[in-house]
Design a binder for these strands. Sequence first.
DNA 1: CACAGTTACATCGAATATTGATATAAATGC
DNA 2: GCATTTATATCAATATTCGATGTAACTGTG
Lengths: 153, 153
Amino acid sequence: MAPSPEALDLGALVTAIEDFNTHFIRLPSVRRLSFSTLSVLHTLARRGPMRLTDLTATEQLKQPALTSLVAKLERDGLVSRRPDPRDGRAVLLTLTEEGAQIVRSRHAERVTRVARLVEHLDDDERAALAGYAAVLTRLTEIAARLDDQKLDD
Amino acid sequence: MAPSPEALDLGALVTAIEDFNTHFIRLPSVRRLSFSTLSVLHTLARRGPMRLTDLTATEQLKQPALTSLVAKLERDGLVSRRPDPRDGRAVLLTLTEEGAQIVRSRHAERVTRVARLVEHLDDDERAALAGYAAVLTRLTEIAARLDDQKLDD
DNA sequence: CACAGTTACATCGAATATTGATATAAATGC
DNA sequence: GCATTTATATCAATATTCGATGTAACTGTG
């Protein structure tokens, strides 16, 4: 059964994203930080202060692994922990300036990389690219909304 | 839609890709396979049979880690090893059908996910997305070309 | 307020992954 | 041939992750 006539080939799109990510993700891992560690820093940078348990939902780690990972991040001065004023059991995790700086520098590194690639595009391709950030952002919003709905089980 | 130079905000684009990937990458890890393991399977699926040393260039693992990872993959029946007929020291790694199946099923899972998101887009947004795959593929080609040039150091 | 149940996080021990240093075996160059 | 380089393997040390379990704080019911 052929899908609708508008030529949106999802298989090709997903393949393109997968292959692009191979080049997009693999930065020279600056400070010997693991993938899990960087993911935690990224999440805290995007969502602001969070509790440990909230992180277990977004990161693919169990709570004991997160406890020790966060302990290490605190020792290294990338994250600070303080008691949640609303709940004596909980801990609020916040990026330190140094932790935020790592996330920013990785972002900057990616911008530099992508800039080097975009130089080689022609004007049409570059113009096309200009519109995609908005659509991707929309997709991310939709994904977040669907994820939230799932939590209501 | 005037093609002005300011139209392409790389910072916003990179942020959008970073955030989208948060939802795109994190699949329910099917078979208790690590990120490194999945990356090796993906690389072998894309590039065909490779030597261990060639993999150390694309994966972010040292050679001893790859040796043991590949040994495990062979035990699990996802990769087969045979001597390189052109070089008695080397080993050629090939995906087995079962290994290829894992890569395909993860791809299919992503397609399903993205399809659920795309349902919520309007026609304009969907049309914009349709061109995205081609430009991303171009960027990936350019990145691969630049990487190859760097190897000539 | 007492108390049972739940939630948030910490701790411990076992299993697994990763790394650096180094060994072995095959290929290459002179 | 012999020295050098290359491809992979092995080993010991460290790091990561998990399951099980402990402790303290919160919640709801009566």
